[in-house]
């Protein structure tokens, strides 16, 4: 078992799984049809990427578990997703702010992973980054349109940014798993992605007429699994309901 690679692949796959599920909660409920479809398509891309990352995790673990087993049969403490992605959807603006903060990191991370020394990591990243580029184009456009929109939409987007900003920093925290990945040339050290993220976020927030909170404080505990917020457990009871009620049920 390659435990560092397993951790790393779980972090990538759990981020896309938890956000993919959150975004899918909008299906049929979005403010307009076009946005409903766009959200569902984004969720699909993220779940598709999850199959690849958790497939790699299962392979690195070597315990005969599948990507589906990892997604549906683990509980909160085994999830390695950052706290940002498990935050509730809130209103549409809050969902799009969460998406943009995630996408801005995701694109930088996938772009760096394209040149990973690990062939499968590089293949998955090369496939995923094409989708993530479309995600960030759309989430940035929507944040700008709503931030620099009406008085009401501006106020809601500022509230969303103020609420979510302390959750944006966790992806850039380096730990021993990250160091092991960087030493092997598999993944960049997370802190090295911060300048590209900051540049993109500053540019989009300036166009959105939104103020980035003046704090570096970052909530932590999701990526290591040490302290997820209460929200993740509630989400998993929905997402894993069928496997919990009917263990081993097949599609």
């Amino acid at each position: 078992m390659d435990s560092d690679l397993f951790e790393f692949a779980c972090r990538m796959g759990d981020n896309t799984l938890v956000l993919g599920h959150r975004v899918s909660e909008w299906c049929g409920l979005a403010p307009v049809l076009e946005e409903d479809i766009a959200l569902a398509n984004t969720a699909l891309d993220l779940i598709g990427q999850t199959q690849m990352w958790l497939g790699l995790a299962a392979q690195a673990e070597g315990k005969d578990r599948s990507a589906d087993d990892l997604a549906m049969l683990r509980d909160v403490w085994d999830f390695r997703s950052v706290l940002l992605v498990e935050q509730p959807n809130g209103d549409f603006g809050q969902t799009m702010m969460r998406q943009f903060l995630f996408d801005a990191w995701h694109v930088a991370q996938l772009d760096a992973l394209k040149t990973s020394s690990h062939q499968q990591v590089s293949d998955i990243a090369s496939k995923s980054v094409k989708e993530a580029m479309y995600h960030v184009d759309r989430s940035a456009d929507t944040v700008i349109a709503l931030g620099d929109g009406s008085e009401e939409s501006h106020a809601r987007m500022q509230a969303a940014l103020t609420l979510l900003w302390p959750y944006a920093g966790e992806v850039f925290e380096d730990d021993t798993v990250d160091q092991a990945m960087a030493d092997k040339g598999i993944a960049p050290l997370p802190s090295t992605l911060r300048p590209a993220f900051d540049a993109r976020v500053r540019d989009v927030m300036a166009q959105s007429t939104l103020q980035i909170p003046d704090t570096e404080f970052a909530h932590k505990g999701g990526k290591t699994g040490a302290r997820h917020s209460e929200h993740l457990g509630h989400m998993l009871t929905q997402m894993q309901w069928l496997q919990r009620a009917y263990p081993q049920a097949q599609w």
């Binding site: 076009e34 946005e35 479809i37 766009a38 398509n41 984004t42 699909l44 891309d45 989708e131 479309y134 184009d137 759309r138 456009d141």
Partner: peptide
């Protein structure tokens, strides 16, 4: 352009 995403992920509207 109406939307970046349409009836399937591979299309825009």
């Amino acid at each position: 352009k109406i939307s970046q995403f349409a009836s399937t992920p591979c299309k825009a509207m």
